[in-house]
Write a protein that binds this DNA or RNA. Structure first.
Lengths: 144, 144
DNA sequence: GTGTTTGCAAAGTGTTTGCAATTTA
DNA sequence: TAAATTGCAAACACTTTGCAAACAC
């Protein structure tokens, strides 16, 4: 069994291309994380989630590297940070404009497409400022 | 019916009444904090802000008590927590429905009246959940 | 080879907690 | 007096950082 097929479009190749596309070296740890994060399903992950996922996939990555990598991916524009509560930083694999729904009981964060919310009126901004973005968070309580 | 018997209505008295109204003992530390927090101007404070403000007003309160008290006030409904970034918990003296504007450069949080934002459409919620609230945060960048 | 990345442990930040002393009702 | 509150320091959870070894180009 000599080699990985060089079939184009497999996850390994596309992660590698993704990383190189933003100027990051495709190291083993980054490829493992990217392969999991960018598998086509939008995710909201904390460092602990990513750490656990890496461990489960038998590619153990130190927690420090997880943090570093998530931050590097964010700076590179591959992830976006979502602040929901004080305790954790969530990283969202969906970097396009959209909103969030947060289940306060289950602590579960899900996406809301931008089109599902219409902001019909916004206040004028203080002078000297430009709008960076508008975050809408629907907080829900799930009945137990 | 009882009417306002004392016209004095000074800050100390009203803070005391405020605390007793929600079943909290009006201790020196709580009165000092409440007198500053509920002076009529809406505020967004962190524990450090409150600590510094207390020190400046010569009523030194330990940081642990500041944290405890802010949390107790929040539970009592006198304050509301606002999550803006991972690093700090902001407590808002305005507990009625409204939104926020956050200057990412100055790290300054200000209120937006609920009426200044119109949410013309919201998605339907997952079944088994009820809307607890909708938070809208306008993030702005101030030019330097 | 040379510069980058990793991983460990240590440090840092913001918040909470255990508990004796103090204060309130 | 009994119960609640305070303040210190220690504990805490999460995140970042310093640096030697490992790795990518």
């Amino acid at each position: 069994m000599e080699s990985q097929k060089k079939k184009s479009g497999n996850k390994y190749d596309s992660s590698s291309a993704l990383l190189q596309g933003v100027g990051l070296r495709p190291t083993k740890q980054r490829l493992a994380l990217a392969g999991w994060l960018f598998d086509g399903c939008d995710k909201h992950v904390t460092a602990e989630h990513a750490y656990a996922a890496a461990a489960k996939r038998r590619s153990s990555i130190s927690l420090a590297t997880i943090y570093n990598t998530l931050n590097i991916f964010t700076t590179a524009g591959l992830l976006r940070q979502v602040v929901i509560d004080g305790g954790h930083i969530y990283f969202d694999t969906n970097t396009s404009a959209h909103h969030h729904l947060f289940d306060e009981k289950k602590r579960l964060l899900t996406d809301i497409p931008a089109s599902a919310v219409r902001l019909a009126r916004l206040p004028k901004l203080p002078s000297g400022t430009t709008l960076s973005r508008v975050d809408v968070v629907l907080r829900v309580q799930s009945r137990s």
